[in-house]
Design a protein around this nucleic acid. Sequence first.
RNA 1: GGCGGCGUAGCUCAGCUGGUUAGAGCACGGCACUCAUAAUGCCGGGGUCAGCGGUUCAAGUCCGCUCGCCGCUACCA
Length: 515
Amino acid sequence: MPDPASPWRPCFITTPIYYVNDRPHIGHAYTSLAADVLARWRRLEGRDVFFLTGTDEHGQKVEKAAKDAGMDPQDFTDQVSQHFRDLAVTMGFSNDGFIRTTEDRHKRACAALWEKLAANGEIYLGHYEGWYAVRDEAFYGPDELTERDGVKYAPSGAPVEWVREPSYFFRLSAWADRLLKLYEDNPDFILPASRRNEVIAFVKAGLGDLSISRTSFRWGVPVPGDDAHVMYVWLDALTNYITAAGYPDDPAAFEKWWPADIHFVGKDILRFHAIYWPAFLMAAGLAPPKRVFAHGWWTNEGQKISKSLGNVIDPVALVDEFGLDPIRYFLLREVPFGQDGDFSRAALIARNNGELADTLGNLANRTLSLIQRNCEGRLPPPATVRDTDQLFIQELKVLPTEVRVRLDSQEFHLALDAIMAAARSANGYITVHAPWALKKTDPARMLEVLRHLHDALRVFATVLQPFMPTTMAKLLDQLGVPEEARGLGALSTPLPGGLVLPPPAPLFAKIEAGA
RNA sequence: GGCGGCGUAGCUCAGCUGGUUAGAGCACGGCACUCAUAAUGCCGGGGUCAGCGGUUCAAGUCCGCUCGCCGCUACCA
């Protein structure tokens, strides 16, 4: 059993499972990217990480889409879920698992959870009723309807009728107080704090019971003991997290990974993760996750993104045009994580050119070129810290801690901000100490200055690995840092002097404006 | 309608429990440097801290109101 206090305890990080009816877009890439960076950081810390993503493959829409395509639903989902596995490869995600809700293990987990809830008296059979549009095969809330000539219409224009079908319900209404206590006892359970307040307000307003089954379609997990029903969306979808953790087949794995350390979600599905999910779990006698983080949405050049506007951002196209690491950097750098943000070419180019190429890339290039030319390409030995080095060295020393603190609270933008600030300091340091001038006046001091700069670059490259794995691997290669010395713990062990360094090459290309 | 948040330099934003000349990045101007991806560094201009009125020895920083944004939520037939 893992010691919950140990800094080396296992760490379970998840993305939502993505609905296969959708094509992967920037939103999917963004959520998973955040999870990926945190997962990679935890591995750098030495933690045992389980980073999970996957696809949600049940429901009426999928059933219908498969039918329209003339395909068996399973064949259909096999095909479309592949898009999301492809996205993970394109974006360089390091997920350890990919779960699909159509897998047998997941159906077993859903059934087990259901039975547990039923045994605990948390489920009862009732009726689900509402305004239903046959044409859309969907229910609508009363506020969405318009009425003409005594007939009510859905926003789609389809006429609706009052439909009543049997449905199982989860006694969510009984959990409001315990949910509020959960939020109170765990102030960081829902982040960012503004979202937490919204959820609390919602729960305080009162919760109704939750319909958790349907008889109107078949493409779902059958309800144990009542084949007329399949489980309805959230009970099926949310359960994926414990399925992947080993519930119920592998108690040892489940013990190891559950509760999840963090669920990354978009703000649109926060309510389900912060209210339904912990309620389901507590009702089944299982621990709720430790944290749910809801991030914001992107606009495109100031415009709301929508399919009808045709301005959906395709992450694959972005990576093709600008390269993977600049995109990864930009997405987490440009906008405070948790808030909405705008994606614009101008902003992307400014970040890439100003920060990656000019500040960081050029710093590496000038430093390594100086070592290459003036030290016969060999790393100077660990250097004495002079009075005039103190400030700079101190900033470097605290940087990994600063980054850790920021990442512990998912403030990716502030982590990157701290790193860029240090890189700017390094540029100041090199200019002030002018090793190119010391070459003639004080060669020994030149070696010290260059060594301090090399140490700085090593810190930057190490802590930036989760954000830009490919490029930082290149930088670490250029710095001569061996594979096994690239973790955070290795930073306390100086590289030996005399190490032969390969000739430097630019890390980041500038992006031409215009285009 | 209710609850919550926001409105600070041209732009994007920091400014914890109120306390010396309000900060950063970008943009702009000048200077320096030349190791480097025509990169870098330094200095500088620029803000009635949305408005009005209060509390206080002292308020972007607290209170009230007004205007303008945004989020969540509820809907008034």
